[in-house]
């Protein structure tokens, strides 16, 4: 397996162009959380021509709804949620300058195409590893939509947050190639 690359947010300049699907990355810096309800609100604001509560340019959104923090800790368990539910909204956010997403699971072809078009990257974190990933979060503050509870937008400061490049700026998708490699073709159920 390849060496692990260090990437710091915001994702300005050409840093993303060097990443390839399947690369292991340790991400550091600021990321915003947003999931279903926050995505819907962000896109509604954009469609109404109103300002967004956060500037998405060169930013990373982490698809997560964390557990409440215990006293003295910055955050509770915080692993990725299924990215596909955000697919409807993602192309609009990429158009607004979003450069990275962290989640788990497959994306629709329209999202892969938008990622390629806007030269962004989709990162995968280990689903269910919420306790482990919480150790890589230094701080967390709610910055928008507090009424959404766990679905509010938090600003997280992360350090060496482990992810895998799922879809790179060229639109290469790691899921497709990895699964094909281990597939035993007699099991094919379609086609």
């Amino acid at each position: 397996m390849d060496r692990v690359k260090q990437v710091t947010t915001p994702l300005s300049g050409g840093v993303l162009e060097e990443l390839r699907a399947g690369d292991r990355v340790l991400l550091s810096g600021e990321v915003y959380t947003a999931r279903d309800a926050a995505h819907r609100r962000l896109v509604e604001l954009m469609e109404a021509g109103r300002a967004l509560p956060v500037d998405l340019r060169d930013r990373v959104i982490y698809y997560v709804g964390p557990c409440p923090a215990k006293p003295g800790q910055p955050i509770g368990s915080c692993g990725p949620t299924t990215s596909g539910r955000m697919d409807t909204y993602t192309p609009r956010l990429l158009e607004a300058g979003l450069k990275g997403m962290i989640g788990k699971g497959v994306r629709k072809p329209t999202v892969v195409e938008a990622i390629r078009r806007w030269r962004a990257v989709y990162f995968i974190a280990v689903g269910g590893a919420g306790a482990l990933l919480a150790k890589r979060v230094l701080s967390a503050q709610v910055v928008a939509f507090p009424e959404l509870g766990p679905e509010a937008i938090f600003r997280l400061e992360v350090e060496d947050f482990p992810v895998i490049v799922g879809i790179d700026t060229r639109g290469e998708d790691v899921y497709a190639s990895a699964v094909a490699h281990y597939r035993i073709s007699a099991s094919r159920t379609q086609g």
Binding site: G127, V174, Y182, R183
Partner: peptide, 11 residues
């Protein structure tokens, strides 16, 4: 035999 594997990253 599907090849999906741990986390869907092949296996």
């Amino acid at each position: 035999s599907l090849g999906i594997g741990p986390q869907g990253l092949g296996g």
